[in-house]
Design a binder for these strands. Sequence first.
RNA 1: GGGCGCUUAGCUCAGAGGAAGAGCGCCUCUCUGACGCAGAGGAGGUCGCAGGUUCAAGUCCUGCAGCGCCCACCA
Length: 893
Amino acid sequence: MSAKRARRTAQDAAGAEPRTAPYNPLEVEPRRYQEWLERGHFRAPVDPSRTPFCIMMPLPNITGSLHMGHALNHTIQDLLTRWKRMQGHNAMWLPGTDHASIGTHVVMERELAKAGKTRFDLGREKFLEFAWAWKERYGGLIYSQIRRMGSGCDWDRVTFTMDPGYYDAVIECFLRLYQTGYIYYGKRMINWCPKDLTSVSDLEVHYETVQSSLWYVRYRGADGGPDVVIATQRPETILADVAVAVHPEDARYREMIGRHVIVPIVHRPVPVVADARVDPAFGTGALKITPGHDPTDHAIGADHGLPVLVILDERGRMTAETGRYASMDRFAAREAVAADLEAAGLVERKEPYATNVGLCDRCRTVLEPYITDQWFCRMAELAKPAIEVVRAGRVRFHADRWTDVYLDWMENIRDWNISRRLWWGHRIPVYHCADCRQHAAGRTPPERCQGCGGTRLQQEEQILDTWFSSAAWPFATLGWPQETPDLRYFYPTSVLVTGRDIIFLWVARMIMFGLEFMGDVPFADVYINPTVLNIEGRRMSKSLGTGLDPLDYVEQGYGADAMRYALTLRCSLGQQDLRFGEKMLEDVRHFNNKIWNAARFVRMHLEGFDPAAAPSALGLFDRWILSRYARLVQAVTAALEGYEFDKAARALYDFMWSEFCDWYLELAKVDLYSDGLAPERRQAVQHTLWGVLEGTLRLLHPVMPHITEEIWQELPHRGVSIVVAPWPEAEGAAVDEDAETHTVTIIAVVRAIRSMRADLGLPAAAPLAPMLRADGSARAVLAAHEEYIAALARAPGLTLGDAPSRREGTVGTVAAGVEVALEIADTDRERARKRLAGELSSARADLERAAGRLADGSFVARAPVEIVEEERRREAELRAREQVLVGYLDALR
RNA sequence: GGGCGCUUAGCUCAGAGGAAGAGCGCCUCUCUGACGCAGAGGAGGUCGCAGGUUCAAGUCCUGCAGCGCCCACCA
């Protein structure tokens, strides 16, 4: 146990209680949020007289609950929206959820499985009823969590991707792409999940390295020709082999090309073909060709006019045609076939082999390359303008490095498999003729087939990829394809805030859809927020048990503001990850309490204060803090403009705590507690306390909306809510260099006295009588503010004049050019000597460095004049300081 | 196989060419009238390693190492 903790515990045991209760966010936050809703502060109806600012929320899944990633993502969006609203924009943040077809399927089917059922037991219609009931039950949960975080969304516009209007917009997108000729249909090899029974797009494949085996299998030559040995990790697919391929330049196999070999087990003679896609360095340099079960083989087979054989069904089981392997699972079949090959003496050897297998992103089942009827969207044409707008800076990524990531993917884009063999989603608006297999696209079935005139038309069973529907999010939420006022007013939107994991899945596709359907980019800026990791730097995951629930922390008593601030403080452009730990919340809780109590102090001293009356007697420190505040306004505004959220948060923290509380409040106390304070001085101090606090609250509000509102409402102010208060301009509070310089001097002097007190071991409460000596303007400033220095340094006997720099029985130093001396008792001589010696040695080290640089001819000749001058000034100062310290030290010997 | 990011005080992170910073933690002191979720004073870093550019390098360049991420998917 630390000493500090021990003391605290002892104090607790003694029953010592803090005089005031700390700030309690749990009481404040829900109440304030409710008030904002009731007052309609988050509503943003179309208003042509104001500039719109619009953010579309990256839509959470209906199956999900709020996690740390959302907490950060929403904090940033809310921060931006609130800030822009305060700047006078008509700020709109649109919330919504995603039907997340495969994700929801997985969750619901897991639920069904508990009752021993599958979705096929229910049938399409019943299953969809079940899904809607699910959505009603859980879909609202995430909204209440979003509200609890303080997010100021326009709830009147909340959108679900299967709402009728949105559904219609998605269908419209499909039909237009179909008419343009970008959508095509046919049997293609895709990534198939044998568990979910659907295709998944390339982006939804999760690769993992697993330990597997590589079997070297001998294929006998046909008609007495030479054998060939191939290497495979999937012996079961040998049954579907239609050829063996070798590299055309491979000398080992030149003789083989055009001859035939016998596929083991099925005893099928197949040709040996030459193809440059074979890597001669891998395995034996001979590749078995299985067009039905491997994408590369599929391509090679197509080019060589080879047939396609299929030996696995949609569930990954061996088909009926495979004889004794029929209905075996693919992994069992692998072992069985391998064993049979072994028994036949055809396995040359088997070696361990690490390979990447593609897993279903949702259910982690090993995916199977599989040939089915699929819908694809051509991407080359859509990608072209989407590349151009980013190159031209019409869409800007923050941080900038994501631009290359985006461009790289877009330039190598491949066609998009948009169909899913699932039920929960937007059903593809195409009708197939049962007679001639022709199809036609449309919202309703055609009366008869255009090909054969038949009337047996059936709608396509498959639905669209979830990401196809979310690609329309920036405009389908605003009423597209209707030309609504909303659409005209808010599109293009302002900023997209999202994670890097969906730059391809979502961001790129929104840009392509936006350009295709709206003829304009969907947003001007894309801010990529960091990924939230736990404190060990591990990914948060529910299944690994490393997930953290932000609402847990909020309700534990830290509150939403603390969560928001903790995340914002670490949300920098430089970092791509953000490590989160509970300690961070504690820090912010302390900060909240600091603000709360500072505000209490201010209010306590606002009696008789009239905010409308301009202050007529500002003192040095009033001017100082106003100047510091003016800089703060600039710094915070600039940081937000540059998406440097951490800088904004840090600037606010440092100002509030280290300048406003530690110095200005303490200095103000000297005035406020003095008996004979002139009324105009009181007014000036009150005005400054109020003005700076009120302004800082406004700057803080986007990050910590609740506590700032709670305090702001208790202050004299000009509006109904801080939510709609104007963002501070450096109005009336300009930078005052003079006040800053002089205050720095005074602070340095106070610190010097405090430091001497501590080094000499003098009691904290002992009244001191330091002697100060200064020249010029510093002297005048000190003379005018002796009272403040005396109070803050607890030095009522302070004198300003000719401090003795070589006097027996004193210790001294130089602070900001002011000599500060203190008489010491005989018993303190040793401590004083130690302090002086320490200071002297570090002064000498600095001096040596400065003198060294100035003695270097090339430095003086080549460094810029200002730098050299600065060094000279420093050297002179250090020399003077050294002299003074030596003087004191000598006098103590 | 390609690409990106990170490596600064015990921990979490700022700093991006001119004297090493913050918060927490640690040490000492303080029952001071906003706050002990506090105040005051301290200790603590050859800025991953090796070269280079420069009068000057956490900061720019080149390698290397470790950690993390992304793309591609090789039988």
